[in-house]
Design a protein around this nucleic acid. Structure first.
Lengths: 308, 308
DNA sequence: CAGCATCCATAGGAGGTCCCTAGTGCTGAG
DNA sequence: CTCAGCACTAGGGACCTCCTATGGATGCTG
């Protein structure tokens, strides 16, 4: 099997025209280089140098093979430099999960932060829908993610709360927004709720379930959709009301449901944003960077929560 | 140190998404591949795969490095294929020494022969002047050559006679060509002789020295030049006469000295063409090919000599 | 939820490779 | 002819490579 080391010795010998000089250049003893050349000649089945008393003379085969050997060594060198670049975040891809609502809070700004600091990198913010992110995390395809989660779910996952955000009731009917919405009124409302696929672990849903459960009632969702944007649009069309984080309401209502408004719940409820990753994972520098930046972004908008 | 083998294991693992599958593909045991990947990760200083229960997942670093690894392996593959091509004479350079007079007999035709059989090769026919060829042979820069030499000279060289060619006396003065030239007449002639630098071992000169020595006379060379073409031109200008192989006379006189003619020596003298190489050399396939083809060419023109 | 299959990591050992030092033989130059 | 320079050989130590056997973790399934 042809090896990089053999080609290195070959080129040094070719340039120096001498095994001794090549060995000196490479920092080896002369017999070592001699052995490498012999092994290379044997593995290729061709003679590369003629041994002639004083020094060695490249054959025409050596002349032909030299540019190939140089290309191999150049490719190896590029590989190593690429690895160093990736380590220093000069290039490469940083992939991070940020699903659903969290994405609304930090998406574009977060990417801008990364690019400002490391102009060469590619950034992937995974999470068009939440099931995908959850599955990727579980399977290990995604190292870490920023999610809005119910407290301490997910066996085998480490959940680190970062910030919390008030949940507000949104509606196109001003009468629904006159006073804060109680559990009783919530249980009677006709709701559209996003995150269908992830409903069992979705933070907002879990919070609402707890709120209603304390009053002995079950939540009524009339419409189930995947995107929060779709849910807000439906609210704007007057087909149902919904409960979303306040920041999402402020960001989406003017654009998707300009005739709708929002009001607090009573008692006020909060969604928790958290960093989630496998409990056993050692986080890479890229993931740590994204976690740090995403945390800063979220905390600038929502109310910081500091884990004990 | 990064090795080709590590990159092979890396790519197999990346494609298969599993160490076990990669090991099977490569024909190794699973721990071997595992060890190679770990060594590669250590030497690059980056994590390439996340080990996650079932299988391994490439990190973004692995995504980035994969094309580099593929380029290295492609370059290695090209190198090996190039070596095979050279072995089969599909490509590469064939270098052969053919100096002075021999070149006039077989130069262009010999190259045509090689190209007809191996269209991909480059051919170098070394030997603008004879010193160069002799030096290259001695130093080992040239593996073998076809020369016109005196019998069995050159210590450390193997000389294989291939053909012989009559030496003729050429002159622009018809009176000089009326009868065959004897040693006596030769010793009185005003001669221009080529191959100045190589005069001690040149075949024609040696032959003439022997011819004159038997009659107790010394050769008289009025003019010394390097090229046989120059010598013939000088003969055409009537400045001197010369002695050259018959084939050279027939080829050069019409072009360079149309007013000159030739006549035999008495007794007739012959130049010997021979293959010369270092006594210790093992001839490469390329050299053997050139020797075979050059021998055929020379023998088609000059009188064959078969070594005992 | 218990059992099974799958996959990776570790341990230990046989064989090979890499690299060294020391010495030999050959070649070319003075 | 002698000397210096260069490649080869021999032998041994350190390391690497690859194997088998085994253990631990995970995910699927009845």
């Amino acid at each position: 099997m042809l090896s990089v080391h053999q080609l290195t010795c070959f080129l040094a010998t070719y340039e120096q025209g001498s095994l001794t000089a090549a060995a000196e250049q490479l920092g080896y003893a002369q017999p070592s280089v001699s052995e490498q050349i012999r092994a290379l000649e044997k593995s290729l089945g061709v003679q590369l140098f003629r041994r002639v008393g004083r020094g060695v003379i490249p054959t025409t085969v050596a002349d032909t093979l030299r540019p190939y050997a140089e290309r191999v060594l150049a490719a190896v060198d590029e590989t190593q430099r690429a690895a160093q670049s990736v380590k220093a975040f000069e290039t490469g891809t940083i992939r991070f999960g940020m699903f659903g609502i969290a994405r609304l809070y930090a998406g574009a700004g977060l990417i801008a932060d990364v690019l400002a600091r490391y102009p060469g990198v590619r950034v992937e913010l995974i999470g068009q829908n939440s099931t995908e992110v959850h599955e990727d995390l579980r399977r290990g395809r995604l190292e870490a993610a920023m999610l809005a989660v119910a407290n301490a779910d997910s066996s085998g996952m480490t959940v680190t709360p970062v910030a919390r955000e008030e949940l507000v009731y949104i509606s196109a009917d001003p009468a629904h927004l006159a006073t804060p919405v109680t559990a009783h009124r919530l249980s009677l409302a006709s709701l559209v709720m996003p995150e269908t696929s992830y409903r069992a672990v979705d933070s907002t849903r879990t919070t609402l379930r707890q709120m209603l459960h304390e009053t002995g009632r079950n939540p009524q969702t009339r419409i189930e959709v995947e995107d929060i944007e779709t849910a807000v649009e439906l609210v704007g069309m007057g087909l149902a009301d919904s409960v979303v984080p306040k920041g999402a309401a402020e960001q989406l209502l003017p654009r998707l449901a300009p005739n709708a408004g929002w009001v607090s719940l009573r008692p006020r409820q909060f969604d928790t944003f958290a960093i989630v990753h496998r409990a056993d994972a050692v986080l890479s520098p890229a993931a740590q960077l994204m976690i740090e930046l995403a945390t800063q972004r979220i905390r600038a908008i929502a109310e910081p929560v500091h884990p004990r």
